[in-house]
Design a protein around this nucleic acid. Structure first.
Lengths: 199, 199, 199, 199
DNA sequence: CCATAAGCGAGACGGTACGTCCAGTCTTAAG
DNA sequence: CTTAAGACTGGACGTACCGTCTCGCTTATGG
């Protein structure tokens, strides 16, 4: 693909990390609205143009930073066991663990900005919302297939909405934590909701 | 209460309405991030100082506008019938109806800003999130009391999270509509989830 | 002249004095640039409209205030003695006495504003600059007439410029005081300048 | 002196000139009071921040503009001839020539503002008032030294006040022009005033 | 081994929204 | 009809950030 001979000074990995770290740190301390390209550059000890060269807007810096973070956290993967409910709980736990206060503010800020930015919306769907959603949906479908769960397509979709909806609701409203206990509760509720009639 | 003799020129109702209308309109067309005190004043045909005199920040304008809108829409109230499931569906329907594209962007924007503004967070809890939540929670508790539903406190809380979480999730992610069909589905799911064992 | 029956509430003399006093006081403490219609009204404890009703601009308030001040100070008039040089010295002394720090700032500010306001310029000429100038000029002309001085019209004009020019120069530049000693010096210099050849 | 390596984009000479020119032009057309930082930036086709970056207030822009103007006009210097009266006339002529309508308004406006701004007052003394004053004073002192004039220190000081006082008086009051004829008249008057007794 | 080329920091550039202040005008109730 | 009070539209204030640009310096590859 990129067979250009790579002339000139190579990109500074130091600067890249400094920018991503600065973005997350500033987002946590000042919120998404308070996050600023100028502030990122200043905090990272980097020229302003260096930020703009690689990321057109603060959205892009944040998304990159979140992806970076997710990659580092995802090293110890959650193996599937075949036990649908256990796998569901594991998936929810893994997802919830990522939504620390650090990422929560960033995610909500990005989603808010995506309300009027279709491109950003699609990007977030593709990278943040969609994969998790499809993973859970696939688990549930597998459960239906092996008889441990029961429900039509609409029921499964709604179950997924229940799980992640609750997560987002709590992230936004902060009326209750998004933790292991919640993963447990949701898993149990989904089991009730999709219990096979035969059982 | 306010028995001050009201000296000086009285506040202009015209200006107040123009500002609130302009805020909602601009939020819909340009998104929360694109909403601007200057823009509000310009669109409303109002001096900038007049906006700042009554609302310290764009958050306050929006909250007032939303409250105003809710008041106007809430005139034709939804009477409670005593049938728990029917009342739940009615409440969800009424809530979902308010979350048009007009208010959706405003709400998500406000919630994003509330991530780092505890004062705003509490205000939204008190005026937007809390009342609806408590209304639904009370309905479910009544259902438990009259035997049409069954579940402990945690189960009821989770049920409420399911209902409004799904709404927020769809508002944010826009992967599916927030409409009457959703209210129907959620009501049915909650009925399953909280079905009395005796039945 | 004004035989209107004077209906309605009569103009408040209290308010008038409060405004004029406030204007002078504020001009002294904050300078002409810092003088504000709003500030005048506030300091005077008077409604803003009351100021605007009687004086269209801060210039007018100041001019009125200065005239008022001059009237009060001018009660002990300087009688002419017939001795030209003595009368010149008396006139200069009287003039210089009025240019306290209080009036100095106001006058210079007004003159600066008059640079681009012909109407104000004419008004100041008619009330502040002109009369003093003509008084001195008349004294000098009388001196020429009775033989105690000598000089053509241009010489007399220049002498007047010397006297009041020095006063303004020192008011503006503040490199030296405008006091009795200066009146003495100027009088002596004019005597030298316009000394009759015969003497 | 300034051996800093000069990093970053260098200052735009174009913008500097545009600002200074705009300031003088606007001051002439609208007067000192009507001069506005915003207006300067707009007229100069320059960002507002660019003006504030280099000049904290409109005073500073004007002073810079006047200095710039003086430097450009002062290229064809007036050589001293040793003839005191001729040199005096030359100096006055050069000074009067600078006080066109363009600079007159600016100077009077600045002096008015200096009435309550000691820092500005000192700056004007150092750059505008003082040098001219001292130059004339030195010429007169030289004349006394070589016997062509006579008078004590106070007499010389008063003579300087007469010369420049008349200039300022006419600039302010505009009752007569500040031109070559005035320089001639003043020079002659000073000669009379300081004529050696021996002659 | 130095020429070319790109990245880097710094920071000035033209713009625009911020939130405050004052200019003038108006609209009340009270005298 | 004046007064004090105060809300109204409008505009300049000085600050901050936007995204672009232009410097000198650094760091790589390639003739």
């Amino acid at each position: 693909m990129d067979d250009t001979p790579a002339r000139g000074r190579p990109r500074s990995e130091t600067a890249r990390r400094a920018v991503l770290d600065a973005a997350l740190q500033l987002c946590q301390s000042g919120g998404y609205q308070g996050l600023t390209m100028k502030g990122i550059a200043l905090t990272a000890g980097v020229g302003r143009q260096t930020v703009y060269r690689w990321w057109p807007a603060k959205q892009d810096v944040l998304i990159d930073a979140l992806r970076d973070l997710a990659l580092r956290k995802a090293e110890h993967l959650d193996p599937e066991t075949g036990d649908t409910l256990r796998d569901v709980r594991t998936l929810l736990n893994a997802t919830f663990t990522l939504t620390t206060s650090l990422t929560g503010k960033a995610l909500v800020g990005l989603m808010a900005e995506a309300q009027h930015d279709p491109a950003l919306s699609h990007r977030l769907q593709a990278t943040v919302i969609g994969p998790r959603r499809q993973a859970l949906r696939a688990l549930l479908a597998r459960g239906v297939a092996d008889g441990s769960l029961e429900g039509d397509a609409a029921a499964l979709d709604l179950a997924v909405d229940f799980a992640f909806g609750t997560m987002w609701y709590r992230l936004i409203s902060q009326h209750a934590p998004v933790d292991t206990a919640l993963a447990e509760q949701i898993t149990a509720a989904l089991a009730t909701l999709l219990r096979p009639a035969a059982a």
